[in-house]
């Protein structure tokens, strides 16, 4: 076993510690730092539930070792809403459009959306939907996620309803 010192920033807070080389970033964030909004869905890099933002990029925290995040700025879903509780636009869009059911895949989806939405030139509908191909949701059939993306990118009104 090997121990390595790391120092990183998580959601604006400085963290230091000595950790094993094999500890995943996902486990570090969940267990060591207590950010349980990071959800581990497959540990194979396929489902996207564990996605966090590392130095501005959406990253699968199950495929990254915590030591690789040394010196980085990491953001988890817990940092998205404003301190006064106001939801981030991607959270609000998901809420408005019933974009989640069980909510397990949701934090990863939000982090990918947030990176694409918050960058200098926000992503359009096609790019955002293309990015969603890296996230598996078993509950919703992606209906509300797609509507949320359309709301975020201004390509459609939020809710489409059935005939009554």
């Amino acid at each position: 076993m090997s121990e390595h010192p790391i120092a990183l920033t998580i959601n604006g807070q400085a963290y230091t510690g000595r950790i094993e080389g094999r500890l995943t970033l996902a486990d570090y964030l969940r267990v060591n730092a207590g950010y349980t909004g990071v959800h581990v869905g497959c540990e194979q890099g396929v489902c996207g539930a564990c996605t966090v933002i590392v130095d501005g990029r959406a990253v699968r925290s199950c495929l990254m070792l915590a030591v690789q995040a040394d010196g980085s700025e990491v953001r988890t879903v817990e940092s998205l809403a404003a301190p006064d509780g106001t939801l981030h636009p991607v959270q609000q869009a998901m809420r408005d459009n019933f974009g989640l059911q069980c909510g397990f895949c949701t934090p990863g989806i939000l982090m990918t959306m947030a990176v694409l939405h918050d960058r200098k030139e926000p992503a359009g509908e096609d790019e955002m939907i293309a990015a969603m191909s890296g996230h598996i949701c078993r509950c919703t059939g992606y209906q509300g996620i797609r509507r949320a993306i359309r709301q975020l990118t201004g390509s459609a009104e939020p809710a489409q309803e059935g005939a009554h």
Partner: peptide, 9 residues
């Protein structure tokens, strides 16, 4: 949704 969207589930 309030708790699930903010990682507080």
């Amino acid at each position: 949704d309030g708790r699930l969207l903010t990682g507080r589930g």
